[in-house]
């Protein structure tokens, strides 16, 4: 099936892009590869019937946040490679072992979590039917504005606070 092949291609390119991104010494190429990772995960969201999330992921992460990172890199003139950036072999050993421990715990969790509880079979077909009925945005928006209204408002306040805090932090003090 072409869809399965595409999904696996997206998965492989996400992992490959992440590995390349972590090992690049030049911050600008790290940003570019991270954008690639976000595009690949957006493709995976699309195949997992999360169309709205896929669009938001490209627009918000791949677009807005990564442009912000690139903007800060250029503002501070940090776009060159630095040989001191990567830690030495001791740091590599510690970092690698902690991350492998994380990988083991997460894999155990994902496989073991469904062993303990019976899996509810509502799956992708129900999501697909709801999307066909209410539209791909409506299926996310309807619970957002009915059940989770207060959470949405609190998130709005959080964004406002972050805007004010950013201006306060980045402002040059005049004495």
């Amino acid at each position: 099936m072409i869809q399965d092949f595409l999904f696996q291609a997206f998965a492989a390119s996400a992992i490959l892009g992440a590995v390349i991104m972590v090992t690049r010494r030049n911050p600008v190429s790290a940003v570019i590869f991270l954008v690639g990772v976000f595009f690949a995960t957006s493709g995976m969201f699309l195949m997992l019937d999360a169309h709205y999330i896929a669009a938001i992921n490209v627009i918000l992460y791949g677009g807005a946040i990564m442009v912000l990172f690139l903007f800060v890199l250029m503002l501070l003139n940090l776009g060159h490679a630095d040989w001191r950036d990567l830690r030495g072999p001791v740091g590599g050993l510690i970092g690698g072992s902690i991350s492998i421990a994380f990988l083991g715990v997460l894999t155990r969790l994902f496989v073991g979590g469904t062993e303990a509880r019976p899996v509810v079979e509502i799956a992708g077909s129900a999501l697909r039917e709801a999307a066909a009925e209410q539209g791909v945005v409506g299926v996310v928006a309807r619970p957002l504005f009915t059940e989770y209204t207060i959470v949405l408002e609190v998130t709005g306040v959080l964004l406002l606070v972050s805007i004010v805090g950013t201006i306060l932090l980045a402002r040059r003090e005049r004495t």
Partner: peptide, 27 residues
């Protein structure tokens, strides 16, 4: 595909942990 997505998510998270512990550049 869902199973693959879970494992890819675990691997991506681990790569992120490596990056946090291995790099000195704050950005």
């Amino acid at each position: 595909n869902g199973l693959i997505a879970l494992f890819v998510s675990a691997i991506l998270f681990s790569i992120g942990v490596i990056g946090v512990l291995l790099r000195r550049n704050a950005i």
